[in-house]
């Protein structure tokens, strides 16, 4: 405890010093962008796509350097961001609901107050898919099958305590039926098991299904409006199920960022998002975008944390 308060004090002093220097013309040196996943993952590609635009809109000839710190489904990277100096020269990628769920099911060295919320860029809604060979090709048939016999519907998903798992909990209470979770390690193995007909249904994200439309039945998408990536997939709300859920990917900085730095970063993210070239690059890499800037992002985070808490208390996933 003593050590902690000491380090907080030290951090404050450091931040005071850096604040004064940051009052000069931010940015004046390179900015590290910490990515909690290996190079080539969805989050990494988002970071690398956005980096040149941030450089452009932050100006001053700044360079934004992507640093991969993979491990523990992003937790190692997020922890590093939370513990970095809040001077605007360290920002990092942030994945929801994972980042908040980890504060519940693991000992995390950070919490919702450890960050300055910059911008959420990607919102990748969940979809329910069944094998092409399956005769369950509508939501009504699925619910019927799940209610007919408890444990009859096996659900392939990519991990425990992720967006797909939360979506399943929502589905379970919305349809008042039980499902058997089959957690693969990653969404590609889950999708392959579906295509091979080894499981009844699967929950993945829309970006992971667009390249496999002919191989799978997609029953619905968990967004408020239809996705521009696949206009023909009906939303669950259209079908009478109030299910909205997805994987979110954005950027945060350590808590206590100087205000002028924060506003410069927020402006740069906004300008980046509005840049049509950036939107094209994101679409090309299969990332469905939806911006939540600053306070909106913080509210979104609080909402996700609340949801995770609710599920964790009623149906802990481990």
């Amino acid at each position: 405890m003593g050590f902690k308060s000491l380090s907080v004090a030290a951090a404050l002093i450091v931040s005071c010093i850096t604040t004064t220097s940051a009052l000069a013309d931010y940015p004046e040196k390179k900015i590290d962008m910490i990515v909690g996943f290996a190079a080539g993952g969805g989050t990494d590609v988002m970071a690398r796509n956005i980096a040149p635009y941030l450089e452009k809109y932050l100006g001053n000839g700044v360079s934004v350097v992507v640093k991969n710190m993979p491990g523990a489904s992003g937790q190692i990277g997020i922890t590093a961001v939370a513990e970095a100096d809040p001077d605007g020269y360290t920002i990092g990628t942030y994945n929801l609901p994972g980042a908040m769920a980890r504060t519940l099911d693991r000992n995390a060295d950070y919490d919702a107050d450890s960050f300055t919320y910059l911008a959420n860029i990607v919102n990748d809604p969940n979809v329910i898919v069944t094998p092409k060979s399956s005769d369950i090709d509508t939501m009504d048939k699925l619910v019927e099958a799940a209610k007919a016999r408890s444990g009859a519907v096996t659900v392939a998903m990519s991990s425990l305590g992720g967006d797909d798992h939360f979506f399943l909990q929502k589905l379970s209470s919305a349809t008042d039926a039980d499902y058997i979770t089959v957690p693969f390690s990653g969404s590609a193995p889950a999708r392959s098991a579906l295509m091979g007909g080894h499981v009844t249904m699967g929950i993945i994200n829309v970006s992971e299904v667009v390249n496999f439309r002919d191989e799978l039945n997609v029953l619905g998408i968990a967004s408020k409006e239809r996705s521009s990536m696949a206009e023909d997939i009906p939303t669950f709300q259209e079908q009478g199920y109030d299910l909205v859920n997805g994987a979110l990917r954005g950027f945060v900085a350590p808590a206590g960022l100087p205000e002028d730095v924060e506003s410069k970063l927020l402006a740069a993210f906004q300008q980046t998002y509005d840049d049509p070239d950036f939107q094209t690059a994101m679409r090309k890499s299969g990332n469905p975008t939806e911006l939540a800037l600053g306070d909106d992002f913080e509210a979104l985070n609080a909402e996700q944390l609340e949801l995770a808490k609710q599920i964790w208390e009623t149906q802990p996933w481990k």
Partner: peptide, 25 residues
Amino acid sequence: LGIPGTAVAAVMLGGLLIHGLQPGP
């Protein structure tokens, strides 16, 4: 399918994704 057969293929898959090449038919 997006499921690499070896550890090296897994890393290479990242090399494809970084160029916007999503696996699949």
